[in-house]
Amino acid sequence: MIDRRCLLALLAMGATIGSLAYAQSISKIRLVLVHGRGQQGLKPETLKSEWLQALRQGAAAIGRTLPNDLSVAFPFYGDDLQKFVDEFNLPLASEIHAKGTPEQDEYLAFQAEVAEAIRQRSGVTDMQVDVEYGQNPKPKGPLNWEWVQAILQAVDKHGGGMSQGAIEAFTRDVFLYVTRNRVRDTIDQIVSAGITDEPSIVVGHSLGSVVAYNVLRTDQRKLRVPLLLTVGSPLGIRAIRDQFRPLRFPLPVKHWYNAFDERDVVALFPLDASNFAVTPQIENYGLVRNKTSNRHGIVGYLDDQQVAGRLIEALAA
């Protein structure tokens, strides 16, 4: 027969173990991966596997591993974004040959501002742009499609990394997201559904970093995000940044870590006090050497030792 004191001790021990198990269950951190543009037609599970494999490689390089029971969400909006691209049918600068509609002019002005920011930051000179523009007598300006095309051609040749076509497609897709409410709301709903009220580390790549920022700054739920990790982010480009004024640090986020490769033309601007002034300040890491051909690919960011290490630390916190 069990002594009464032993019984009480066993009950207390059971309660303690139960409390610890409960605490662990509610504090377990999830991982939410928010992809960028150009993913239409691809399988979300395949993409998620590629992201995780790159993270594992980065972790292995510093002697660490991802938890085996890690819960990972990969909210996929690639096909929905492509539907909007097809619906709006905005021509790239290289496809414009005559004066367009007011919507096309708005888009061209946006693209011109992005292209000019990239040109200046990547060190492409006015003379190099003039060579691409040739003897064209038309006045230079943001609504002159030939001038915008000349800037993009010069960046393609002298800025390194991303091609003219890739930059044009990138700016078109970002333009649709930041300026068209229906596009933004649809994509935000998809990504928001992947973030639950459990503690979640959110990783955003390229356009995905823009989406993640907007979702976390506007979501009315009491979310808990110990780390927002952005890689290859274009948020520092004024034409994109200004769409979110007044800027503010997302309330659910405890820490924001932004990693970029200085050769990645989409992410040339660090998210610092000059380019993305918020309080508390964002921690920037600009020593990534992205091994992908355009210096912008997700694999070349997630297999970086510092990036993978920061994520592992947050998972273990």
Rank of each mutant, 00 (worst) to 15 (best):
R4Y: 12
L8H: 12
A9H: 10
L11G: 13
G14D: 03
S27F: 06
I29H: 03
V34L: 02
V34I: 10
R37K: 14
G41W: 02
G41Y: 03
T46L: 14
E50I: 09
L52S: 02
L52Q: 02
Q53P: 00
A54I: 03
Q57H: 12
Q57C: 09
G58C: 04
R64P: 04
T65K: 12
P67F: 07
D69G: 06
L70T: 10
L70R: 01
V72H: 10
A73K: 09
F74A: 07
F74K: 04
P75V: 03
G78C: 04
D79Y: 07
L81R: 07
V85K: 09
D86V: 14
L90E: 11
A93M: 08
S94N: 07
E95C: 10
H97P: 01
K99D: 15
P102A: 03
D105H: 09
E106L: 14
Y107S: 09
L108M: 03
L108E: 00
E113R: 15
A115K: 02
A115D: 01
E116A: 01
Q120Y: 10
S122A: 15
G123N: 07
G123C: 08
V124A: 07
M127K: 14
V129I: 12
D130S: 15
Y133P: 06
G134Q: 04
Q135V: 12
N136T: 14
P137C: 10
K140G: 09
P142N: 13
L143D: 11
N144R: 11
W145E: 12
E146H: 11
I151E: 11
M162R: 10
I167G: 09
F170R: 05
F170A: 15
T171Y: 07
T171E: 09
L176G: 02
V178D: 03
T179H: 12
T179K: 14
R180T: 08
N181D: 15
R182Y: 09
R184E: 04
S192Q: 13
I195H: 03
E198Y: 13
S200G: 00
S200L: 00
I201N: 05
V202Q: 06
V203L: 14
G204I: 03
L207P: 09
R217I: 06
D219K: 00
K222S: 14
L223H: 06
R224W: 02
L229H: 05
L229K: 05
G232H: 06
S233D: 01
S233F: 04
L235G: 03
G236A: 01
R238Y: 14
R238Q: 15
I240S: 00
I240N: 01
R241N: 09
L247M: 08
P250K: 04
L251M: 13
P252C: 07
W256R: 01
N258P: 05
R263G: 07
A267Q: 08
A267S: 15
S274T: 11
S274W: 02
P280T: 02
P280S: 04
P280D: 00
I282S: 04
Y285D: 12
G286K: 00
G286L: 04
V288H: 04
R289T: 13
R289A: 12
R289Y: 10
K291C: 09
T292A: 08
T292S: 13
S293W: 12
S293L: 13
Y301M: 06
G309I: 11
G309A: 11
L311C: 00
L315S: 04
